[in-house]
């Protein structure tokens, strides 16, 4: 594996549609729940505690399945398609908001497009077909495997993305001082590493046993956001 591949995929400039998603921050700002840096800090801690373990674990679990297939080319298609389908259904059952299911699949589709063009592989074609695309963690798991990264790195990129998406949206929506926001992200780095490591450590479990943390306002505000007439962010 190449360290540069890791950086490419983690980079916010990797063209996988992330800039259009605020991960609930636009709705939180509109509801007056996040107005300043302290509000963003509390928001990001919530995202890291609740969204990141699920996203990172499903990313790493998908990566393990994909990497297993990559190592054993003789594996039949069903060897990999069945676990992928199971991961897809388990993640679907953890994503109760239709708006969030759509946002996850749209981001997955965008990532798949970028991944396929950047690190071509047969693996992408094994993901379950869905008109809106694969769930983002599944797409990321396969892309990280195609890029030759490890499951730990896959989980780390997933957890990091959970933080940087809304942080970048906050700079745009609230005009927060970008240096202060970077300082906040740097202060959260240790927690982000821990969450990623914990997710990678459970990735070998059956999909049913993977984390299922729910954050009520994530679902509720995503549904409210989807009803807005005008949105700046897709989610």
């Amino acid at each position: 594996m190449h360290r540069t591949a890791y950086l490419l995929l983690a980079d916010g400039r990797f063209p996988s549609g992330g800039h259009a998603h605020s991960s609930g921050l636009e709705a939180a700002v509109a509801a007056g729940r996040v107005t300043d840096l302290a509000g963003l800090e509390a928001f990001l801690h919530g995202r890291l505690s609740y969204a990141a373990p699920v996203t990172a674990a499903f990313t790493a679990a998908t990566h393990l399945t994909a990497a297993r297939m990559g190592r054993a080319p003789s594996a039949t298609e069903s060897d990999v398609k069945v676990p992928f389908l199971s991961l897809d259904r388990e993640l679907e059952a953890r994503t109760v908001s239709p708006a969030l299911r759509l946002a996850s699949r749209r981001q997955g589709r965008a990532l798949l497009r970028a991944g396929r063009n950047t690190w071509p592989s047969e693996l992408y074609g094994q993901l379950p077909k869905h008109p809106d695309g694969p769930h983002q963690p599944l797409a990321l798991g396969v892309t990280t495997a195609a890029a030759g990264l490890s499951a730990e790195e896959a989980a780390q990129i997933a957890a990091y993305g959970v933080l940087t998406g809304p942080a970048s949206a906050a700079v745009r929506l609230l005009g927060l001082d970008p240096y202060q926001v970077q300082n906040l992200l740097a202060r959260m780095a240790g927690s982000c590493d821990e969450i990623a490591a914990a997710a990678a450590a459970v990735a070998h479990k059956s999909p049913q046993e993977l984390p299922a943390h729910a954050a009520p306002l994530a679902d509720i505000s995503a549904e409210l956001h989807a009803t807005w007439e005008v949105r700046l962010f897709a989610s």
Binding site: A28, R33, F43, H45, G46, S49, A51, R94, V96, A212
Partner: peptide, 27 residues
């Protein structure tokens, strides 16, 4: 035989951000 709902809600001081704007918003 298929998963329909998997939800785990954690609250309390042991979880950073639990009552913040991304989770309960002080509710």
């Amino acid at each position: 035989g298929a998963p329909l709902l998997r939800q785990s809600l954690t609250i309390g001081p042991g979880t950073p951000g639990w009552d913040g704007p991304a989770v309960l918003g002080g509710a």
